[in-house]
């Protein structure tokens, strides 16, 4: 099979997905790839079910909020190939209100609560999810608290302003 490394994974992905998959970086040896939400399930399925890649273990699903971007929500998947011990990170940027992406519960049962948590904190609509409810917060909370527009502390406090520290 030759070297099973990030270069090999990149080649395989580019051969199968062409320009739909972008290489975002390789920080600390962990390959990050980006795709569009239309292709995410295809990509995850390919990574999971391909005989050689076989990223069969879903480590985590989470999201990041970048309010200044056009597509402000980045959904991050971490997959792990337990045999070769290689991890990969997949990022999908989504926008719209509510931001939506197809669910990964069709591939991994364990994605259920991870996606519920992401919905709970970021308001991402995982389309096709069997049970998309809040999980850690109370039901009548009408905001998604991990979005950056919700401050943790009183925003009028001045003693923590970056201005005073020369930033």
């Amino acid at each position: 099979m030759g070297n099973f490394d990030n270069q090999y994974i990149t080649d395989r992905l580019q051969r199968n997905f062409g320009t739909d998959v972008k290489i975002l970086g390789e920080s600390f040896g962990l390959l990050s790839v980006g795709t569009a939400k239309e292709r995410i399930i295809d990509l995850l399925r390919f990574l999971k079910e391909d005989d050689e890649l076989s990223f069969s273990y879903l480590t985590d699903i989470t999201a990041v909020h970048y309010p200044e971007l056009e597509d402000p929500f980045c959904i991050v998947y971490h997959l792990h190939n337990l045999v070769q011990n290689i991890r990969i990170r997949i990022k999908v940027f989504v926008g719209g209100e509510p931001p939506s992406i197809p669910t990964a519960t069709t591939l991994w049962k364990g994605a259920n609560w991870m996606e519920r948590e992401t919905y709970d904190f970021f308001g991402i609509d995982f389309q096709g999810h069997p049970d998309l409810r809040r999980i850690l917060n109370m039901d009548d909370l009408d905001v998604f608290p991990m979005r950056k527009e919700y401050p943790l502390e009183d925003p009028n406090r001045v003693d923590k302003k970056d201005f005073y520290f020369g930033r």
Binding site: T59, D60, T62, V64, H65, V76, H78, W113, E117, D162
Partner: peptide, 23 residues
């Protein structure tokens, strides 16, 4: 697991705990 994104500020831009009990 600890997934951290750092943007150069004083605190992490995003920190996510992959908590085994939860999963």
């Amino acid at each position: 697991g600890f997934y951290m994104i750092h943007d150069g500020g004083r605190s992490p831009y995003r920190l996510h705990f992959r908590r085994p009990s939860f999963i």
